[in-house]
Computed example of a mutant assay.
Amino acid sequence: MATIPSLPSRDDVLRMARNTTDITGQLLDTAQNITRIAMNTFDPRDGSGAEVLRVLRETTAELAEASASPQAQEAFYRIVGTLTRLGTSGAPLAVHPVSEPAQALLTAIGDSLLPVLDAVEPAVEEFADALGDLVEATSPLLPAAAGVAAGALLAVTPVLRAAADVLRDSSPELRRVADALTAALAPLMPLQVALAERATAAGAGVVRATLPPLADLAEAAAATSKVARPVLVAGEELLVSGFERFQPLLLATASRAGRVARAAAVRVSAAVSPTAEPGVLVAVSTP
């Protein structure tokens, strides 16, 4: 039998009533502050309300004027026409018989790629992290690269526009070229298909014949690598230790070459500059 819950005490009732009263007071204060802000904003006596309404009217009028201009109307019509052409040209593709093999091909590719994606997921995550670190490290160069890209785009834009104008003016010749290519290549298509079938059959035979030797070769190479793994590890260890030993020598050589280059630059600048004070000899000692 379920137990009957005990009734709240007098102190609990008073505490809940006090909390309810406090929350109600806070809500009323908030509503009063919002009302005061709205009244101060749109109050016509200090000019702020009239200024807000004036700015709204000017903005609305400018937007209406900009949208009613011939350029804006032409842009709207071009956008609608482009969307209409895309819809009319893309709708038949969904019901075309070619779409069914394409969908089957995409499904097969997706099913076969899922194990590959699962296998390379850790490597892809590590590569993405490393790439993010590289991008973060090279972030000071990004504005310069963006400027160079923008300049290249601005330089290429006139060329593209000129090419578009030339191709637009030469549309009859382009149609003639397309018709000629179609007429020349149409008789060759059956021959190409037959040759492709023969080449496919020959290639399949070659693959069937070469796969067993390749499998044997791969197994032999794997066994050889297992046997030669200690030798390879030892060679890598020798190479790394040799590089570590030669590192101080390389650093010292680079430092000495830098000092020699600086000394030569100072001597050349002192010999070329005629404004140097007489009797002052600039020399840099190289240890």
Rank of each mutant, 00 (worst) to 15 (best):
T21R: 13
A204R: 11
L195F: 09
V116M: 04
R36D: 12
T60N: 15
A222V: 10
S241A: 14
I23Q: 14
R18I: 04
P143M: 00
D133E: 06
R10N: 10
L195G: 08
V266C: 05
E58L: 09
L232Y: 15
I109A: 10
Q247L: 15
M1Y: 07
A265E: 10
A152N: 04
T138V: 13
Q26G: 04
P274W: 04
P230M: 03
A102N: 03
G147Y: 00
Q103F: 04
A144N: 01
A144R: 00
L214H: 01
D169H: 03
P70F: 02
T59P: 00
A75W: 11
A270L: 07
L105V: 06
E197Y: 02
N19R: 15
A64P: 02
A61D: 11
A194S: 09
L106E: 02
V135R: 13
V268A: 09
V177G: 02
L53A: 07
P101H: 03
D118Q: 07
D129W: 02
T200Q: 15
G49D: 00
V177N: 05
E277D: 12
T286N: 09
F127P: 00
S255L: 12
L131Q: 15
E121I: 04
A263M: 03
G147R: 00
T210F: 07
P140Q: 02
L93Q: 05
S225D: 13
A130Y: 03
A50I: 11
A66C: 02
A104G: 04
R36P: 01
D169G: 03
